[in-house]
Design a binder for these strands. Structure first.
Lengths: 149, 149
DNA sequence: CCGCATCCCTGCCGATACTG
DNA sequence: CAGTATCGGCAGGGATGCGG
């Protein structure tokens, strides 16, 4: 069971909040940490959440302002994404009862804090995008084209 | 035959056609960065990719070994996930033509490097999971129950 | 201006069965 | 053991139209 101990210290997600790592063996990797990661990944990895968060980083924005900024999004999806983000406490929704009504969306501190790890991921993406695209092209060629060199 | 990764090619992000990027403060978000982030998020944010990558972190594994380790996954999904990861150069596939056939999957250096930013995200997830769940509960209560007056 | 409801199409994902 | 093919359920997400 101690076989993975060194590895766990190297880079498992449970480095901070698993006081009793029952079996961090092969199976143990995918318990709580995996669930947490998948949870946040599901939230932020959907089609529009990141776009919204990144646009909101520059400050509060109104609904249609956001809609125009993202520009590929339908209002249905913007509403749904905003609701989901609001539900998770990542963005705040401020209604100004005027005529016409005004609604401002902004990142909460939690939403701001999320941007840091996401930026790291974005950094990786920017750095390795070419490699990924290349690998993809190679895979595609190798699969489709059996010219066997 | 189904397309394996339609997620990556959403690409309606042609708002770059607006040369008027003077207000980069609000738009301060690089369109390229946004696209890259969404791309990697789509790849890693799906239902099983992270599980596979995390299990593979302990070293190379065979197909059914991986299947047993993840245990909630169907062989269809394992195959698809592995193919997608392989296509992007994140995992390597090594076939040993024996009887019975043996196929080992392992993280490439690119796949290893991806774990770092993902770990950051996982760290965030672990640290803020409670906050998110709380916000979610508050939102749920606030929506359903209006007796706060 | 904000946002909800409906219709509908598309793609994901699981279960099963079959091949090498 | 490793992988593919097919079927069916289900959810994501776009288009449109209506209400505050």
């Amino acid at each position: 069971m101690e076989t993975m101990t060194a590895l766990a210290q190297e880079g498992t997600f449970s480095s901070a909040s698993s006081p009793n790592v029952t079996d961090t063996a092969k199976q143990g990797v995918d318990h709580t940490a995996c669930r947490a990661v998948n949870d946040v990944l599901s939230r932020v990895g959907d089609k529009w959440s990141m776009r919204v968060v990144m646009n909101l980083d520059g400050g509060a924005m109104r609904f249609n302002e956001l809609r125009r900024a993202i520009d590929g999004i339908s209002q249905r999806m913007l509403t749904r994404t905003l609701r989901g983000l609001e539900r998770d406490g990542l963005v705040s929704r401020t209604v100004t009862p005027s005529i016409p009504p005004r609604v401002d969306y902004a990142l909460t501190s939690l939403g701001q804090s999320l941007r840091e790890p996401v930026r790291a991921l974005g950094d990786w993406a920017m750095a390795n995008r070419a490699a990924v695209e290349d690998a993809r092209a190679v895979f595609d060629s190798g699969c489709d084209d059996r010219d066997h060199a």
